[in-house]
Design a binder for these strands. Structure first.
Lengths: 175, 175
DNA sequence: TATTGATATGATATAACGTATCATATATCG
DNA sequence: CGATATATGATACGTTATATCATATCAATA
Protein backbone atom coordinates (compact mmCIF):
# COMPACT_ATOMS: atom_id res chain seq x y z
CA UNK A 1 0.00 0.00 0.00
CA UNK A 2 1.30 3.39 -0.98
CA UNK A 3 0.99 6.11 1.62
CA UNK A 4 1.29 9.68 0.51
CA UNK A 5 2.32 12.68 2.46
CA UNK A 6 -0.92 14.18 3.52
CA UNK A 7 -0.22 17.31 5.39
CA UNK A 8 2.60 19.43 6.64
CA UNK A 9 0.63 21.76 8.85
CA UNK A 10 2.79 24.14 10.85
CA UNK A 11 6.07 22.38 10.16
CA UNK A 12 6.85 23.59 6.65
CA UNK A 13 10.16 25.09 7.60
CA UNK A 14 11.26 22.10 9.60
CA UNK A 15 11.27 19.50 6.87
CA UNK A 16 8.93 17.46 8.93
CA UNK A 17 6.09 15.92 7.06
CA UNK A 18 3.15 14.10 8.47
CA UNK A 19 0.94 11.19 7.67
CA UNK A 20 -2.41 11.52 9.28
CA UNK A 21 -1.71 13.83 12.14
CA UNK A 22 1.49 12.11 13.19
CA UNK A 23 4.92 13.51 12.47
CA UNK A 24 6.67 11.64 9.74
CA UNK A 25 9.51 11.94 7.30
CA UNK A 26 9.69 10.73 3.71
CA UNK A 27 10.40 11.61 0.08
CA UNK A 28 9.54 9.28 -2.75
CA UNK A 29 5.78 9.14 -2.40
CA UNK A 30 5.11 11.45 -5.29
CA UNK A 31 7.05 9.40 -7.79
CA UNK A 32 5.57 6.17 -6.58
CA UNK A 33 2.07 7.51 -6.70
CA UNK A 34 2.51 8.93 -10.17
CA UNK A 35 3.87 5.66 -11.39
CA UNK A 36 1.00 3.76 -9.82
CA UNK A 37 -1.49 6.07 -11.49
CA UNK A 38 0.23 5.61 -14.82
CA UNK A 39 0.04 1.85 -14.51
CA UNK A 40 -3.56 2.00 -13.40
CA UNK A 41 -4.46 4.06 -16.48
CA UNK A 42 -2.51 1.83 -18.83
CA UNK A 43 -4.34 -1.21 -17.52
CA UNK A 44 -7.69 0.44 -18.13
CA UNK A 45 -6.76 2.21 -21.36
CA UNK A 46 -7.30 5.60 -19.79
CA UNK A 47 -5.28 8.46 -21.19
CA UNK A 48 -2.92 9.71 -18.52
CA UNK A 49 -2.10 12.86 -20.41
CA UNK A 50 0.43 15.56 -19.71
CA UNK A 51 -2.03 17.91 -18.05
CA UNK A 52 -3.63 15.19 -15.95
CA UNK A 53 -0.27 13.87 -14.88
CA UNK A 54 0.97 17.30 -13.96
CA UNK A 55 -2.15 18.17 -11.97
CA UNK A 56 -1.86 14.98 -9.98
CA UNK A 57 1.82 15.64 -9.46
CA UNK A 58 1.07 19.12 -8.17
CA UNK A 59 -1.51 17.80 -5.73
CA UNK A 60 0.80 15.05 -4.55
CA UNK A 61 3.71 17.45 -4.13
CA UNK A 62 1.76 20.06 -2.26
CA UNK A 63 0.16 17.36 -0.15
CA UNK A 64 -2.62 19.67 0.79
CA UNK A 65 -5.96 20.77 -0.57
CA UNK A 66 -5.66 23.18 -3.49
CA UNK A 67 -8.34 25.14 -5.30
CA UNK A 68 -8.84 24.70 -9.02
CA UNK A 69 -7.50 28.18 -9.64
CA UNK A 70 -4.39 27.52 -7.54
CA UNK A 71 -3.70 24.60 -9.80
CA UNK A 72 -4.52 26.59 -12.90
CA UNK A 73 -2.03 29.25 -11.85
CA UNK A 74 0.73 26.66 -11.68
CA UNK A 75 -0.22 25.26 -15.06
CA UNK A 76 -0.21 28.73 -16.52
CA UNK A 77 3.26 29.42 -15.12
CA UNK A 78 4.47 26.28 -16.82
CA UNK A 79 2.80 27.04 -20.13
CA UNK A 80 0.40 24.11 -19.89
CA UNK A 81 -3.00 25.59 -20.53
CA UNK A 82 -4.20 28.81 -19.01
CA UNK A 83 -7.97 28.72 -18.94
CA UNK A 84 -10.27 27.33 -16.23
CA UNK A 85 -11.55 24.38 -18.27
CA UNK A 86 -8.03 23.02 -18.49
CA UNK A 87 -7.83 22.65 -14.74
CA UNK A 88 -11.41 21.56 -14.24
CA UNK A 89 -11.22 18.88 -16.92
CA UNK A 90 -8.08 17.41 -15.47
CA UNK A 91 -9.54 17.50 -11.98
CA UNK A 92 -12.76 15.88 -13.17
CA UNK A 93 -10.76 13.07 -14.71
CA UNK A 94 -8.66 12.56 -11.61
CA UNK A 95 -11.67 12.68 -9.32
CA UNK A 96 -13.80 10.37 -11.41
CA UNK A 97 -11.05 7.79 -11.51
CA UNK A 98 -10.29 8.03 -7.84
CA UNK A 99 -6.86 9.67 -7.89
CA UNK A 100 -8.09 12.85 -6.31
CA UNK A 101 -10.89 13.80 -3.95
CA UNK A 102 -12.87 16.97 -3.90
CA UNK A 103 -13.33 18.60 -0.50
CA UNK A 104 -16.80 20.11 -0.75
CA UNK A 105 -16.44 22.26 2.30
CA UNK A 106 -13.35 23.94 0.86
CA UNK A 107 -14.08 23.90 -2.87
CA UNK A 108 -10.70 22.27 -3.14
CA UNK A 109 -8.97 19.12 -4.26
CA UNK A 110 -6.55 16.74 -2.63
CA UNK A 111 -4.65 13.67 -3.81
CA UNK A 112 -6.17 10.39 -2.71
CA UNK A 113 -4.24 8.28 -0.23
CA UNK A 114 -5.78 5.03 -1.38
CA UNK A 115 -5.95 5.25 -5.17
CA UNK A 116 -7.20 2.34 -7.15
CA UNK A 117 -9.15 0.88 -4.26
CA UNK A 118 -12.84 1.61 -3.99
CA UNK A 119 -13.49 3.47 -0.78
CA UNK A 120 -15.68 6.10 0.85
CA UNK A 121 -13.22 8.41 2.51
CA UNK A 122 -13.82 10.84 5.33
CA UNK A 123 -11.85 14.03 5.77
CA UNK A 124 -10.71 15.83 8.87
CA UNK A 125 -10.20 19.49 8.10
CA UNK A 126 -8.33 21.71 10.52
CA UNK A 127 -9.90 25.17 10.54
CA UNK A 128 -6.71 26.71 11.89
CA UNK A 129 -4.03 25.39 9.56
CA UNK A 130 -6.22 23.99 6.77
CA UNK A 131 -4.60 20.58 6.99
CA UNK A 132 -6.78 17.90 5.50
CA UNK A 133 -6.43 14.25 6.42
CA UNK A 134 -8.12 11.46 4.59
CA UNK A 135 -9.41 8.68 6.79
CA UNK A 136 -11.10 5.44 5.90
CA UNK A 137 -14.10 5.01 8.15
CA UNK A 138 -15.35 1.48 8.66
CA UNK A 139 -18.01 0.29 6.23
CA UNK A 140 -21.59 -0.20 7.32
CA UNK A 141 -21.67 3.13 9.05
CA UNK A 142 -24.58 5.29 10.09
CA UNK A 143 -25.15 6.77 6.64
CA UNK A 144 -25.58 3.37 5.06
CA UNK A 145 -27.96 2.25 7.75
CA UNK A 146 -30.00 5.41 7.34
CA UNK A 147 -30.12 4.98 3.58
CA UNK A 148 -31.36 1.43 3.92
CA UNK A 149 -34.11 2.55 6.23
CA UNK A 150 -35.22 5.18 3.74
CA UNK A 151 -34.90 3.01 0.66
CA UNK A 152 -32.31 5.41 -0.72
CA UNK A 153 -29.59 4.04 -2.98
CA UNK A 154 -26.30 5.73 -2.15
CA UNK A 155 -23.89 6.20 -5.02
CA UNK A 156 -21.32 8.34 -3.30
CA UNK A 157 -20.85 10.06 -0.02
CA UNK A 158 -19.35 13.22 1.37
CA UNK A 159 -18.01 12.88 4.89
CA UNK A 160 -16.17 15.91 6.15
CA UNK A 161 -15.42 17.02 9.67
CA UNK A 162 -14.16 20.46 10.52
CA UNK A 163 -12.30 21.08 13.73
CA UNK A 164 -8.88 21.35 15.28
CA UNK A 165 -5.96 19.08 14.48
CA UNK A 166 -3.69 17.81 17.27
CA UNK A 167 -0.82 20.15 16.38
CA UNK A 168 -3.01 23.24 16.46
CA UNK A 169 -4.70 22.07 19.63
CA UNK A 170 -1.26 21.79 21.28
CA UNK A 171 -0.30 25.25 20.14
CA UNK A 172 -3.54 26.65 21.46
CA UNK A 173 -2.97 24.98 24.81
CA UNK A 174 0.60 26.34 25.00
CA UNK A 175 -0.48 29.96 24.64
CA UNK B 1 -41.55 17.46 17.76
CA UNK B 2 -42.32 19.47 14.66
CA UNK B 3 -41.89 17.72 11.36
CA UNK B 4 -41.64 19.84 8.26
CA UNK B 5 -42.39 18.95 4.70
CA UNK B 6 -39.05 17.98 3.30
CA UNK B 7 -39.47 17.18 -0.32
CA UNK B 8 -42.06 16.94 -3.01
CA UNK B 9 -39.97 15.23 -5.66
CA UNK B 10 -41.91 14.35 -8.80
CA UNK B 11 -45.31 14.96 -7.30
CA UNK B 12 -45.58 18.72 -7.49
CA UNK B 13 -48.74 18.69 -9.55
CA UNK B 14 -50.41 16.06 -7.44
CA UNK B 15 -50.58 17.89 -4.14
CA UNK B 16 -48.74 15.03 -2.57
CA UNK B 17 -46.02 15.99 -0.22
CA UNK B 18 -43.53 13.78 1.46
CA UNK B 19 -41.70 13.43 4.72
CA UNK B 20 -38.51 11.55 4.33
CA UNK B 21 -39.07 9.56 1.22
CA UNK B 22 -42.54 8.46 2.16
CA UNK B 23 -45.65 9.94 0.64
CA UNK B 24 -47.42 12.18 3.03
CA UNK B 25 -49.96 14.94 3.14
CA UNK B 26 -50.04 18.02 5.32
CA UNK B 27 -50.35 21.77 5.45
CA UNK B 28 -49.61 23.72 8.58
CA UNK B 29 -45.95 22.91 9.04
CA UNK B 30 -44.73 26.22 7.75
CA UNK B 31 -46.72 28.27 10.21
CA UNK B 32 -45.82 26.03 13.10
CA UNK B 33 -42.16 26.12 12.24
CA UNK B 34 -42.11 29.88 11.83
CA UNK B 35 -43.82 30.30 15.15
CA UNK B 36 -41.37 27.94 16.81
CA UNK B 37 -38.45 29.89 15.35
CA UNK B 38 -39.97 33.13 16.57
CA UNK B 39 -40.33 31.78 20.08
CA UNK B 40 -36.83 30.35 20.03
CA UNK B 41 -35.43 33.77 19.03
CA UNK B 42 -37.49 35.62 21.62
CA UNK B 43 -36.19 33.35 24.35
CA UNK B 44 -32.61 34.00 23.31
CA UNK B 45 -33.03 37.66 22.47
CA UNK B 46 -32.17 37.05 18.85
CA UNK B 47 -33.67 39.39 16.30
CA UNK B 48 -36.02 37.44 14.10
CA UNK B 49 -36.26 40.23 11.55
CA UNK B 50 -38.45 40.57 8.49
CA UNK B 51 -35.81 39.36 6.06
CA UNK B 52 -34.77 36.42 8.23
CA UNK B 53 -38.35 35.41 8.82
CA UNK B 54 -39.17 35.62 5.14
CA UNK B 55 -36.11 33.61 4.08
CA UNK B 56 -36.98 30.86 6.52
CA UNK B 57 -40.57 30.96 5.32
CA UNK B 58 -39.44 30.60 1.72
CA UNK B 59 -37.28 27.61 2.57
CA UNK B 60 -40.03 26.01 4.58
CA UNK B 61 -42.60 26.60 1.87
CA UNK B 62 -40.45 25.31 -0.94
CA UNK B 63 -39.42 22.38 1.19
CA UNK B 64 -36.42 21.77 -0.98
CA UNK B 65 -32.87 23.01 -1.24
CA UNK B 66 -32.58 26.49 -2.72
CA UNK B 67 -29.51 28.43 -3.77
CA UNK B 68 -28.79 31.81 -2.22
CA UNK B 69 -29.59 33.50 -5.51
CA UNK B 70 -32.90 31.67 -5.83
CA UNK B 71 -33.84 33.10 -2.48
CA UNK B 72 -32.51 36.51 -3.40
CA UNK B 73 -34.66 36.52 -6.52
CA UNK B 74 -37.77 35.96 -4.43
CA UNK B 75 -36.78 38.70 -2.02
CA UNK B 76 -36.18 41.05 -4.90
CA UNK B 77 -39.62 40.28 -6.35
CA UNK B 78 -41.13 41.18 -3.03
CA UNK B 79 -39.15 44.37 -2.62
CA UNK B 80 -37.22 43.09 0.41
CA UNK B 81 -33.59 43.73 -0.43
CA UNK B 82 -32.09 43.02 -3.80
CA UNK B 83 -28.38 42.50 -3.31
CA UNK B 84 -26.53 39.27 -2.51
CA UNK B 85 -25.50 40.27 1.02
CA UNK B 86 -29.15 40.49 2.01
CA UNK B 87 -29.68 36.82 1.26
CA UNK B 88 -26.33 35.66 2.57
CA UNK B 89 -26.71 37.51 5.84
CA UNK B 90 -30.11 36.06 6.48
CA UNK B 91 -28.90 32.59 5.56
CA UNK B 92 -25.86 32.93 7.80
CA UNK B 93 -28.10 33.84 10.68
CA UNK B 94 -30.49 30.99 10.04
CA UNK B 95 -27.67 28.48 9.61
CA UNK B 96 -25.72 29.61 12.65
CA UNK B 97 -28.80 29.30 14.82
CA UNK B 98 -29.79 25.95 13.45
CA UNK B 99 -32.94 26.83 11.52
CA UNK B 100 -31.41 26.07 8.17
CA UNK B 101 -28.69 23.73 6.91
CA UNK B 102 -26.30 24.31 4.08
CA UNK B 103 -25.92 21.46 1.61
CA UNK B 104 -22.25 21.68 0.62
CA UNK B 105 -22.58 19.43 -2.36
CA UNK B 106 -25.25 21.67 -3.87
CA UNK B 107 -24.24 25.12 -2.63
CA UNK B 108 -27.78 25.31 -1.41
CA UNK B 109 -29.82 25.72 1.74
CA UNK B 110 -32.69 23.80 3.26
CA UNK B 111 -34.89 24.29 6.30
CA UNK B 112 -33.94 22.17 9.26
CA UNK B 113 -36.32 19.44 10.35
CA UNK B 114 -35.15 19.47 13.94
CA UNK B 115 -34.64 23.13 14.82
CA UNK B 116 -33.63 24.07 18.30
CA UNK B 117 -32.14 20.68 19.08
CA UNK B 118 -28.41 20.19 18.70
CA UNK B 119 -27.78 17.55 16.07
CA UNK B 120 -25.40 16.44 13.31
CA UNK B 121 -27.66 15.79 10.39
CA UNK B 122 -27.01 13.69 7.33
CA UNK B 123 -28.55 14.41 3.95
CA UNK B 124 -29.70 12.08 1.21
CA UNK B 125 -29.64 13.90 -2.10
CA UNK B 126 -31.38 12.44 -5.13
CA UNK B 127 -29.34 13.17 -8.23
CA UNK B 128 -32.40 12.72 -10.44
CA UNK B 129 -35.01 14.92 -8.79
CA UNK B 130 -32.80 16.90 -6.40
CA UNK B 131 -34.90 15.95 -3.42
CA UNK B 132 -32.99 16.35 -0.19
CA UNK B 133 -33.93 14.52 2.96
CA UNK B 134 -32.49 15.28 6.34
CA UNK B 135 -31.78 12.25 8.48
CA UNK B 136 -30.48 11.99 12.01
CA UNK B 137 -27.78 9.36 12.10
CA UNK B 138 -27.08 7.75 15.45
CA UNK B 139 -24.37 9.40 17.52
CA UNK B 140 -21.02 7.77 18.05
CA UNK B 141 -20.65 7.00 14.38
CA UNK B 142 -17.60 6.21 12.32
CA UNK B 143 -16.47 9.82 11.95
CA UNK B 144 -16.32 10.33 15.68
CA UNK B 145 -14.39 7.14 16.20
CA UNK B 146 -11.94 8.10 13.48
CA UNK B 147 -11.48 11.54 14.98
CA UNK B 148 -10.76 10.09 18.39
CA UNK B 149 -8.14 7.81 16.88
CA UNK B 150 -6.43 10.76 15.21
CA UNK B 151 -6.70 13.13 18.13
CA UNK B 152 -8.80 15.45 16.02
CA UNK B 153 -11.43 17.61 17.73
CA UNK B 154 -14.54 17.74 15.58
CA UNK B 155 -16.55 20.94 15.74
CA UNK B 156 -18.99 20.26 12.96
CA UNK B 157 -19.59 17.67 10.32
CA UNK B 158 -20.82 17.41 6.77
CA UNK B 159 -22.55 14.15 5.95
CA UNK B 160 -24.08 14.02 2.52
CA UNK B 161 -24.98 11.04 0.36
CA UNK B 162 -25.83 11.35 -3.31
CA UNK B 163 -27.86 8.69 -5.03
CA UNK B 164 -31.34 7.73 -6.10
CA UNK B 165 -34.46 8.25 -4.03
CA UNK B 166 -37.12 5.53 -3.88
CA UNK B 167 -39.54 7.40 -6.14
CA UNK B 168 -36.96 7.89 -8.87
CA UNK B 169 -35.76 4.31 -8.52
CA UNK B 170 -39.34 3.13 -9.08
CA UNK B 171 -39.70 5.31 -12.14
CA UNK B 172 -36.44 4.04 -13.51
CA UNK B 173 -37.55 0.46 -12.98
CA UNK B 174 -40.89 1.16 -14.67
CA UNK B 175 -39.30 2.44 -17.86
C1' DT C 1 -1.79 3.37 -43.60
C1' DA C 2 -5.88 5.87 -44.34
C1' DT C 3 -10.34 6.36 -42.40
C1' DT C 4 -13.19 7.13 -38.89
C1' DG C 5 -15.13 7.70 -34.47
C1' DA C 6 -13.97 8.76 -29.84
C1' DT C 7 -11.49 11.43 -26.71
C1' DA C 8 -8.81 15.47 -25.32
C1' DT C 9 -7.39 20.29 -25.67
C1' DG C 10 -7.65 25.40 -27.05
C1' DA C 11 -10.09 29.46 -26.59
C1' DT C 12 -13.78 32.66 -25.60
C1' DA C 13 -17.40 33.96 -23.02
C1' DT C 14 -20.41 33.87 -19.30
C1' DA C 15 -22.82 31.85 -15.36
C1' DA C 16 -23.08 30.90 -10.51
C1' DC C 17 -21.60 31.60 -5.92
C1' DG C 18 -19.79 34.54 -2.28
C1' DT C 19 -17.56 38.64 0.30
C1' DA C 20 -15.40 43.32 1.59
C1' DT C 21 -16.51 47.80 2.75
C1' DC C 22 -18.66 51.82 4.21
C1' DA C 23 -22.80 54.36 5.12
C1' DT C 24 -27.29 54.40 7.34
C1' DA C 25 -30.90 52.71 10.18
C1' DT C 26 -32.97 50.18 13.91
C1' DA C 27 -32.91 47.76 18.21
C1' DT C 28 -31.45 47.18 23.12
C1' DC C 29 -30.17 48.53 27.43
C1' DG C 30 -28.46 51.43 31.07
C1' DC D 1 -32.59 59.89 26.21
C1' DG D 2 -28.09 58.53 24.90
C1' DA D 3 -24.75 55.07 23.98
C1' DT D 4 -23.67 50.76 22.09
C1' DA D 5 -24.56 46.92 19.49
C1' DT D 6 -26.84 44.88 15.80
C1' DA D 7 -28.99 44.89 11.25
C1' DT D 8 -29.71 46.69 6.60
C1' DG D 9 -28.68 49.40 2.15
C1' DA D 10 -25.73 49.84 -1.53
C1' DT D 11 -21.66 49.45 -4.41
C1' DA D 12 -18.10 46.95 -5.97
C1' DC D 13 -15.46 43.09 -6.45
C1' DG D 14 -13.53 38.31 -5.83
C1' DT D 15 -13.93 33.36 -6.46
C1' DT D 16 -15.59 29.17 -8.37
C1' DA D 17 -17.47 26.72 -12.30
C1' DT D 18 -19.55 25.74 -16.90
C1' DA D 19 -21.33 26.17 -21.83
C1' DT D 20 -19.91 26.16 -26.40
C1' DC D 21 -17.56 25.55 -30.53
C1' DA D 22 -13.31 24.78 -32.96
C1' DT D 23 -9.16 22.05 -33.37
C1' DA D 24 -6.10 18.38 -32.35
C1' DT D 25 -4.82 13.84 -30.96
C1' DC D 26 -5.64 9.02 -30.04
C1' DA D 27 -7.28 4.18 -31.00
C1' DA D 28 -9.31 0.75 -33.60
C1' DT D 29 -9.83 -1.36 -37.84
C1' DA D 30 -10.83 -1.91 -42.64
Amino acid sequence: MIRYIISICKFEGLLVTRIGFEDHNHDSCVKEALHAAETHCLDRKLQFTKVRRRVLEILLSEHKALGAYDILARLTDEGIGSQPPVAYRALDFLVSHGFVHRIEKMNAYIACTLPGEPHSPAFMICRVCDAVVEAQPPAGDALNQTARDLGFQIENTVLEAEGICPACADEGAAE
